[in-house]
Computed example of a mutant assay.
Amino acid sequence: METRRKASIGRPRGFDAGEALEQAMRVFWEQGYEGASLTDLTDAMGITRTSMYAAFGNKEELFRKALERYTEGPASYGARAMREPTARQVAVAFLNGSVRATTRPGCPTGCLGVQGSLAAGAQGSHARDALAAWREEHTSLLGDRFRRAVDEGDLPAGTDPELLARYLMTVANGIAVQAAGGATREDLQRVADMALRGWPPA
């Protein structure tokens, strides 16, 4: 009896937690934090509320986990871009990645990190703050990469790396908003190309 009870306690969950989190990420991506009801989330995840709370915590914690999955999945172009050998190649990879990620067939348009809580009220303040910190973190990473480029002579000595990073992030955020509004991948790629025409010469 004791052995049977231990086996029952250690029995794995009856659902794929990774797939459930993937579906939750898509709901938040499409509907935003406040727009995504618990019913929307659990229906998409194929689990009960009890299972959701047990596996992922409350809605706020689920959102943070979904944002992590988004960062490691659809938004992973940002981390890959940082590894490009020159600052200009970083910028090209970053903006091109933004265009592709926000217009990917079979996925919601736009960017979870931008639209996820734009219209959030008081109840969504935690999500809004988490996304503001998420965007600021990525801007800082770009700034660090461009500062290194200045030190290495890849960017002119007078370049402001923080301003350049914020410029790039602002363009990427604008691309996401335009994508959510129905702009095509081709149109947004032209925007990305235009934004890079004035890139500082080495």
Rank of each mutant, 00 (worst) to 15 (best):
A55T: 00
G97T: 11
G198K: 09
R100T: 00
R135H: 13
R185Y: 08
E186K: 13
A165E: 01
G106F: 11
A79E: 12
H138A: 10
Y53D: 09
N96W: 06
L196V: 10
R100L: 09
L38P: 10
G158L: 14
A44I: 03
A127N: 08
F146A: 02
T3Q: 13
G106H: 11
R13N: 00
E19S: 04
L118C: 07
L168H: 07
V90P: 02
S98D: 10
L41Q: 02
D43G: 08
R88L: 00
A54D: 08
Q89S: 06
A122T: 15
D16I: 00
W134V: 03
A122Q: 15
D187K: 12
R145S: 01
D144V: 14
F94G: 06
Q31I: 05
P12Q: 05
S117T: 12
D144W: 13
L164W: 13
L168G: 01
G121F: 02
E68Q: 14
T102Q: 13
R5L: 11
T139S: 15
Y33C: 12
R166D: 09
A122W: 12
H126G: 15
S125G: 07
L142P: 00
V99P: 11
G46Q: 01
E84R: 15
A81R: 09
A75I: 05
D16T: 02
T71K: 12
R135Q: 13
R26H: 14
Y70E: 07
S8L: 15
L168E: 04
R128L: 04
H126R: 15
E22I: 02
G181N: 07
S37L: 05
A165M: 03
L155G: 01
D187L: 14
A132L: 15
A101C: 06
R145K: 13
Q89V: 02
N58H: 11
F146N: 01
G18L: 02
E72W: 00
L118N: 08
Q115R: 15
Y77C: 07
L95S: 01
E22L: 11
L196T: 07
D43A: 07
R185H: 07
V150M: 03
T103L: 09
P201M: 13
F15E: 03
G10S: 07
D151F: 13
T103Y: 03
A165D: 03
L196E: 06
L155V: 04
H126Q: 15
S51L: 06
P201W: 08
T159Q: 14
E34C: 03
R197K: 11
P12F: 05
P74E: 08
S117Q: 13
C107M: 15
L62W: 07
I47Y: 02
E19P: 03
A24P: 08
A180H: 11
L163P: 11
T170C: 11
A149R: 00
M25C: 12
G124Q: 08
